[in-house]
C-alpha cells in the first residue's frame, strides 16, 4: 500500500513535469520519472502478491531497457530538432500540424 501510494505520487509528479514544461529535455525527464514509478509498482506488487516469483523484477528490467532505448532515441531527436530549428521548446515546434 505504501509503495503504491509512493509510486502514484512519483507518477503524478512526472505527469506534472511533462505537461507544464516547455523544454523537450525537461519533458523527457518527466517521462523518466513516470517510468521509475512504474518500475517501483512492478517490484512491489510482485513481491507482495507472489513472493516466490521474480516476474515483476524481470519486467522492470525490460522496462529499464526500453526506457534506455527511448532516452537514446529521444535525445537524438532533440539534437536533430535543435540543429534544424535552433530551439527545443515544444510550443514553438508545430510541424505536426495539418
Amino acid at each position: 500500500m505504501h509503495y503504491l501510494v509512493l509510486s502514484a505520487l512519483l507518477f503524478s509528479i512526472g505527469i506534472y513535469g511533462v505537461l507544464t514544461r516547455r523544454n523537450a529535455i525537461a519533458i523527457l525527464m518527466g517521462i523518466e520519472l513516470m517510468l521509475n514509478a512504474v518500475n517501483l509498482n512492478f517490484v512491489a506488487v510482485c513481491a507482495s502478491l507472489t513472493p516466490n516469483q521474480i516476474t515483476g523484477q524481470i519486467f522492470a528490467a525490460f522496462v529499464i531497457v526500453v526506457a534506455a532505448a527511448e532516452a537514446c532515441i529521444g535525445f537524438a531527436l532533440i539534437i536533430a530538432i535543435y540543429r534544424n530549428f535552433a530551439k527545443v521548446n515544444v510550443d514553438d515546434i508545430n510541424i505536426m500540424r495539418w
Partner: peptide, 17 residues
C-alpha cells in the same frame, strides 16, 4: 477532426491522459 490537430506535443499528451 482536423480542429484538434494543433501540432503541439503537449496537447497530444493531454489527449492521451
Amino acid at each position: 477532426l482536423r480542429l484538434i490537430q494543433t501540432g503541439l506535443v503537449r496537447h497530444y499528451i493531454l489527449f492521451v491522459l
